[in-house]
Design a protein around this nucleic acid. Structure first.
Lengths: 113, 113
DNA sequence: CCGACTAACTAGTGTTGCCAGGTACCGCTA
DNA sequence: TAGCGGTACCTGGCAACACTAGTTAGTCGG
């Protein structure tokens, strides 16, 4: 059974990761772990890696290989100028959608009075 | 170039339509028109019809054919008990996601101070 | 008859997240 | 030294979903 969340993440997950990278650079394994801690428990590891490759190919991030004490070298991603533009666009789209859906929700609440 | 909105609607559009039907019954052409008025200007008509068929097959709505004064008969959809359950589930999932992303946004705003 | 509006439907396409693996590096322990 | 767990990254195939670009059909006015 496909969870609601799976479908809802389509389109938003990219923005979420861009927002994380906008705060500070990070690498894939780290991002997956953080998201899982923050409630996205079922997030598939492969999903994050695929997404990172995608946003790299679109030129939203810069990549640097950094050796790790334990394990293979990390690929640290950092948001560049184009990525920041994309992130702003994400916030605009998200705000619009959230506002629209917010209206529906209050209408829903009104109806329950 | 696929718009951000297109991808973001995946998963949420179903909830939006369920919410509309939760308020009062409606038919496809009407729903498409209303959504377009409310800012989803680029929403494809076919998308709504496909979605309605989907939620009908999943048993979330009841259908009634009602003759129209002008044009072919309308298929009026109304939310049933199972649909209301699904709608509640949507609100839960949405609330969680919106809250999580809200955190990222404030973190973003903090960083801009 | 023809265009415009209403109203519903469909086949094919692209994007996206998930599944279920695999590879590789390191340290610890039996 | 062989195995195991943790770290870290990647891949091929699949399913769901919205969009494209149409088609069909009913009603009305010019």
């Amino acid at each position: 059974m496909a969870s609601q969340m799976t479908e809802m993440l389509k389109g938003t997950l990219e923005g979420i990761v861009l927002a994380i990278l906008g705060d500070q650079p990070a690498y894939g394994y780290e991002i997956t772990g953080r998201l899982r801690e923050q409630g996205f428990a079922d997030l598939a590891e492969g999903t994050v890696y695929a997404l990172l490759i995608r946003i790299e190919q679109r030129g939203f991030v810069d990549v640097e290989k950094v050796p790790s004490e334990k394990g293979p070298p990390r690929k640290v991603y950092s948001l560049n100028a184009q990525g920041r533009t994309q992130l702003d666009e994400f916030w605009r789209t998200w705000s619009f959608l959230a506002e629209r859906i917010g209206h529906l929700k209050t209408a829903h609440a009104e109806g329950e009075k």
